[in-house]
Design a protein around this nucleic acid. Structure first.
Lengths: 208, 208
DNA sequence: ATCGCCGCCAAACGTATGTTTCAAACGTTT
DNA sequence: AAACGTTTGAAACATACGTTTGGCGGCGAT
């Protein structure tokens, strides 16, 4: 077993388990057990559990934010009027990707983001803000252009509300699965959610 | 110290600490220590930590849902056209109350709700659904009347998105406090949030 | 071939948690 | 006032956790 294989298997397993159960409720023994590696491997390769959590985020977020930044730059240079729908569609398409595996990972990651916000992982919040704050600002700036009528303060709130809508929804996915199946007799996928989410967010950002 | 006093002090302290740090991260020793009662008191009065969590929810939710149900029944019997704004305002007013202490407790409770959703407290989800599902359905039925153009499936989603917006926002309050203060040089209160939230939810429910 | 490094493993360590125990204190009833 | 059930108190218990340790094995460089 090569080195990178152990590291990758730890990251893969931790990603799923953290999203499923949260950080505090996921023990290193559960991770290493399911990953088929030794318990000490986490502390050896990552140093601590905290560092592992950060590494999980970094592996997903760094390539995504780089790609997003490029897409946003394209939109910035595009002189024509930028619609809110377009901006959101670009971001959503990027998250959902073109393959079959990306939507699942996007869902997993958003659940992770939810855990990061609702649990007191201060180190994580600081880390995220430090490393990915720029892309967030880039997005916000662009968003302001699509909704010039909305005051910046209001826009700030509505962005947070929108984030909450998506993260909260994906965090409770499996219970939503149950409810939705029972009440409407149909299952849900990540692109389903995106489809329903878009008009809600657009309406919410624009306001009553 | 009478019996109810010990129970109440445990509940008061647990409510705050659970909301601040989450369920798993809040130890019984932290609760009993801050409450000034003996460690064994929790297991004596409530039976287990799980039961304590449920009791915290019950103490807040039962009177609130009863009051909400009454208010909703009034709206049901009102024959005139019911606006979405009106319905949401009624619910919001009830949660924020008339006193000075209620907004704080409402914030605390919504943070608790966030914890309940993002952490795998299956027993809690089942408990909430079992005891308060009726009031939720009552609200949903009334909501459908205020937005007859929106298909029920779509409405189902948008309710969840809205719930996510408020719960997520309040769950991250203290970090929002920091951001908001830094970026816009003003603090935020529960009624602030409600004020910003209303147009967002109204716009979101109605759609693009 | 040998040395040194790196990754892996089983085991143990120290700590914190939820829970249980049992005697003492309290309050109510008789 | 005595007896009883109820509540509190300090301590211990069992368990699970994150982390550390020291030895073992392979592999490339010297």
């Amino acid at each position: 077993m090569s080195q990178s294989d152990t590291v990758r298997r730890i990251l893969d397993t931790a990603e799923v388990l953290f999203a499923q159960k949260g950080f505090a409720e996921t023990s290193l023994r559960a991770i290493t057990g399911k990953a088929g590696v030794n318990l000490a491997a986490v502390n050896y390769h990552f140093g601590s559990k905290e560092a592992l959590i950060q590494a999980v985020f970094e592996r997903y977020l760094t390539p995504f934010c780089q790609a997003l930044s490029v897409k946003l730059r394209e939109l910035e240079l595009d002189d024509g009027p930028l619609s809110l729908e377009r901006l959101l569609t670009v971001a959503s398409r990027l998250a959902l990707g073109s393959g079959t595996e990306e939507p699942r990972r996007a869902m997993v990651f958003f659940r992770l983001a939810g855990q990061a916000y609702s649990q007191p992982q201060d180190h994580l919040r600081a880390y995220l803000r430090k490393h990915y704050g720029d892309v967030f600002n880039q997005f916000t700036t662009l968003l302001r252009r699509t909704a010039p009528d909305v005051p910046p303060v209001e826009l700030f709130w509505r962005v947070h509300f929108s984030l909450g809508a998506v993260i909260f929804t994906l965090s409770g996915m499996e219970s939503l699965q149950t409810i939705s199946k029972k009440d409407f007799n149909r299952s849900v996928s990540a692109s389903d959610i995106a489809q329903h989410l878009l008009p809600f967010v657009v309406g919410g950002i624009k306001g009553n």
